[in-house]
Design a binder for these strands. Sequence first.
DNA 1: CTCCGGCGTGAATCCGGAG
DNA 2: TCTCCGGATTCACGCCGGA
Lengths: 367, 367
Amino acid sequence: MAIKTKATEAPALPLNDILSGDCIEVMRSLPDASIDLIFADPPYNLQLKGELHRPDNSKVDAVDDHWDQFSSFAAYDTFTRAWLAEARRLLKPNGAIWVIGSYHNIFRVGASMQDAGFWLLNDVVWRKSNPMPNFRGKRFTNAHETMIWASKSENSRYTFNYDALKALNEGTQMRSDWLLPLCTGHERLKDANGEKAHPTQKPESLLHRVLIGSTNPGDVVLDPFFGTGTTGAVAKMLGRNFIGIEREEAYRKVAAKRIARVRTFDASALETAGSKRAEPRIPFGHLVERGLLRPGEVLVSPRGTTAKIRADGTLAGDSVAGSIHQVGAAYEKAPSCNGWTYWHFRRDGKTIPIDSLRQQVRAEMNN
Amino acid sequence: MAIKTKATEAPALPLNDILSGDCIEVMRSLPDASIDLIFADPPYNLQLKGELHRPDNSKVDAVDDHWDQFSSFAAYDTFTRAWLAEARRLLKPNGAIWVIGSYHNIFRVGASMQDAGFWLLNDVVWRKSNPMPNFRGKRFTNAHETMIWASKSENSRYTFNYDALKALNEGTQMRSDWLLPLCTGHERLKDANGEKAHPTQKPESLLHRVLIGSTNPGDVVLDPFFGTGTTGAVAKMLGRNFIGIEREEAYRKVAAKRIARVRTFDASALETAGSKRAEPRIPFGHLVERGLLRPGEVLVSPRGTTAKIRADGTLAGDSVAGSIHQVGAAYEKAPSCNGWTYWHFRRDGKTIPIDSLRQQVRAEMNN
DNA sequence: CTCCGGCGTGAATCCGGAG
DNA sequence: TCTCCGGATTCACGCCGGA
C-alpha cells in the first residue's frame, strides 16, 4: 500500500534556490500563505513599450502621444496588478512586502498595492550618498529611490524589530530616510567582459537593513525579480531562507555563483537587541506570593501618594482599587499607566521601583 | 448698444487675491492657459482610528478635520482627478505643478497625474529635521513628505533656475532630498484662542525653494488649497503674483492678514534653514550594514579585552551586550565611554581604531 | 543679563495575548 | 471572533520661568 500524502500538506517550498521563468507563472506554482517577506525590485515602465494592448486585449496601432502614453501606463498597471496579486496570495497572514522604485513607476505601484488590499506601513526613502548628477542641469539630481513597506492586510501583525533598528541607528529610532551609498567597487558584480553584470544592482547595505528590521532568522524571503541576487546573498548572511525568481539565465548564473561564496554569520552574531515586549510576563501577584512584597505593605508613587498591597496582588488606594496599572492610571487621571515603573517600595530607608523585583524574578527564571 | 467683450479676450485674472469656494468650481471660473505654476497641498486622506498618546500620556492633536475625510480610495481618486484636470487646463503650455503628500495619498495622486498627461520631472523628498517620533515603536519615524514636480506635458519648456538652486546649495547641484524643519515657533500662525490656526501649515522655507527654483519674478502662482497662505506669503516676498483658493473662511481671514504684513524683498534673499550642520552622526551599525566590519568579528579594547559584533550593530561582551559605548563603559566600570576610540579591529596583523572607519564613511558622504 | 531645565508639540493610517 | 486589560512606547526644538 502506497503512502499517501495528506491533501492538506503543503508542497515543499524550494528554499534557497533560484527558480527560472516568468515571475508571475513561477509564483503561481508556489503555495498560498507560505512566505514571510517579499522584496521586489520590479522593472520600470520603460521596458514594456512594444507590447501595448488595450484592456480588452486589442492591439494598439500607432497613435498620438497622449493615447500611447496612457496605453503604456495601462499595460504597466496590468502587469503590476498581476504580480502583486500573486505576491499577496503567497504571503502568510502576518507577512509583509517591500517594493522599490523611482518616480517613473512607484506611484502606479503604490496605488496598485493599496487597491490590492496591502496596508501601507511606511514609505522609506533611500538617499544615495553618491548619486549620478543631472548632467544637463534641467532637473534636480535624482538622489533617491522610494521603497514601500506594506503588510498583507490592515490587521496583519507584521514583524518589526524596533530595538534592533534603534541599535543600528545608535540609540534613536530609525527614520524613514536612509542614507546609503550606491553599489560600487568590489561589491558590484562584473560579467565575463568586465562590464557590470546588472544595470541596477542594489547595495547589500539596503537589504541588510530591510531584513534585520522586518524578518527573523529562519524566515522565508521571496524576491520575484531576483537579478544578481542581492536579496539572496544578504538573506544567507543573516540566516534567513530565500527564494529567487529570475527569467534571465545570465543573471541566475551570476547570482548562484555569488551566493555560493556567502557564509552565514554565527548564530551569536545574529542575535539582536532584545525587546521588552518579548520578555515573559510576570504578574504583580507573583511578587506577593513569593514574599518579595508583603500584603499590607504600602507602595509609593512619584508624587508621594500611596496604595496598599492586598493579598491577591491588587492595590487598594484612595477610593479606588485594582491592578497596579489601574490604580496608577486613576491617580494620574491618565488613560493608562505602567504600574511597574510608577510604584515604589521602601527598604532600609531607600525607595526602589517595583520593576527591580520583576527583573529579579525574571533572572531567576532564566537559571 | 452695450459694449461687447470680445470672445477671444481672456477675462482678467484675480491676481494676489484669495478666492472663496470649492477649488474645483473656482478653478472652472478661471481662463485656460493662464497660470505659470501651481502649488497644491491637497487633503492627505489620513485614515486615523482611535486616539494616540505619547509615552508621557499626553494626547496627540491629530488631523481629524472634516475636509480630510473621504469614504474610500475611489472617492479620493474621483476628487483628485477632478481638481487635477482643472489644474492642467489652467496651466500655460510651459507651466508646471508641485503637489505635496504623504504615503497615504501621494501614490494615488502621482498615478492620477501621469494619467492626466502631466510629465513627471522629479519627486522631491522633504526630509523633516524635527519630525514627530513613532510613539508606539511599531514603524519607522515618518520623517518625510513627498513632493511631485511635473510639467503640463512632455514637451513643456518648464522653468528651472538651475544656478539659483545651485547657489542655495553651497555650489553643488540641488538634490531631490531637502532637509528643512517643520513650521513651528513664531512662524506658526495661531488663532484667537492661541491654538494653531491650521493643522498642517507648511514652512516658508519649503515654498521659498520651490518658487526660487521653478518661477521667475512676475509669474502667476496658483494654490488651490490655500490654507493659511504660505504660498501667497512667499510669492509676495519673492515678487511673484499669487492666486489662492480656500473654502474655509477662518483660513482665508488668517491668510489675508498674514500676507498683508509681508513685504516684498528687493532682490536676493537667502534661505536660513538647513544650511550648515555639524559633522553627520554615523551610527556604528552603518559600518556593519556596509560590510566594513562583519557580524561575528571581534573588537579589542586597549586592555586587550574583547567583544563580538552582532548584525544589528550591538556588541556582545562578557555578560553584557549593548552599544559600543555601553559595553565599553561596562568593561571600564565607568559611567560612560567613547566606543569609537575605545574599540579596535584587526586587519593584516594591525590593530586599528574603529574611528578610522567612521572617518572613511564621513568622507564618502561629503562627496 | 545669561544659562539651564522643564514643558509643549508636530499631516499618525502606532498593541497584542489571554480567555 | 470578540472583549478585556496588561503594560510598552518619543525626537528635535522653541519657549518660558527661575536661578
